[in-house]
Write a protein that binds this DNA or RNA. Structure first.
Length: 297
DNA sequence: GATGAGCGC
């Protein structure tokens, strides 16, 4: 820091009565002084500030403050970060001094996309056309049912179709037919009755109550190589609950063989999917969607 | 153009 006495500029004393300076000691007369000048920092980090003040004798003095900035930063900040400092500023920061602030709070308006308006009901997949139109628009939906794949409607444990999912042996603890009503009446330790044992439940007759979901199977051909099962699910879910998707993969090469299958809970949904998606352009190809002939076995 | 996997008593 250096303090130079400079002569007051010739014009100023005419307006300024120097005698008053003593009386008004401490009064803010700084507006009479030339504005503060800031030079740099230059490429060596040297910053020079020139300001003018009145000293106690009422004389104008020039104060030059020379500081070296970024010396510490230079040692710590990576080369890449230093490069970034040279980038042109944009947005609200356009008018900021270079190097005056490293970060700033943005007041710019940023629009966020929401999957749907807050508080509104999730889209019903009833109208296939509308749902299809929304395909690919994306949007994060956190609640996804692992049984039927439906998003934003219910959790896996509440799935209305969970009975169709393969059950673990441990939970298919079925009482003998005569005990069923007693258990249901609550006289036993448990009042729980497996769905397959409830009144009105479809009897499959066999000892294995787990249903094979090969019903309502739809064959999809002319798929592009990079269409995977999740893609098919996305495409077909809009018509109704899907029990299974499968894409045939070449075991040797691991690439898709260009066809797959989608099984629906409801036959009508499968039919609607066929009507709507057969001939539907997907990934530059025209899909073929038909009823599948039952698997040989 | 094309019709899916697999445990092995």
């Amino acid at each position: 820091m250096a303090i130079d006495k400079t002569d007051p500029s010739p014009q100023q004393p005419s307006k300024l009565r120097w005698g008053e300076l003593d009386e008004d000691d401490g009064e803010d007369l700084d507006f009479l002084l030339p504005p503060k000048q800031v030079h740099g920092p230059d490429e060596n980090g040297i910053k020079r500030v020139i300001e003018y003040k009145f000293n106690e004798d009422g004389n104008r003095v020039k104060i030059t403050t020379t500081t070296r900035v970024r010396k510490l930063a230079k040692a710590r900040v990576s080369k890449r970060a230093m490069e970034r400092r040279g980038w042109a500023k944009f947005g609200d920061a356009v008018h900021e001094d270079v190097g005056s602030r490293l970060t700033m709070v943005s007041t710019e308006e940023i629009l966020l996309e929401r999957p749907r308006a807050p508080g509104s009901k999730p889209e019903e997949p009833k109208v296939a056309g509308d749902s299809l139109a929304q395909l690919g628009k994306g949007g994060a939906i956190l609640m996804v049912c692992r049984t039927c794949g439906k998003k934003g409607d219910h959790w896996t444990s509440r799935c209305p179709y969970k009975d169709l999912a393969p059950q673990t042996e441990a939970f298919v603890d079925k009482p003998a037919a005569s005990e069923t009503s007693a258990a249901a009446a609550g006289s036993g330790k448990s009042t729980y009755v497996p769905p397959s044992m409830r009144a009105g439940a479809e009897r499959t007759g066999g000892s294995d109550m787990r249903r094979r979901n090969d019903e309502n199977s739809v064959r999809v051909t002319n798929l592009s190589e990079d269409t995977r099962e999740p893609d098919l699910l996305e495409l077909f879910r809009t018509f109704g609950p899907v029990t299974r998707v499968y894409v045939a993969i070449d075991q040797k090469t691991g690439v898709s063989r260009g066809f797959g299958f989608v099984n629906f809970v409801n036959r009508e949904d499968a039919q609607r999917a066929i009507n709507k998606l057969n001939g539907y352009g997907y990934d530059n190809l025209i899909l073929r969607v038909e009823w599948a002939t039952p698997r040989a076995n």
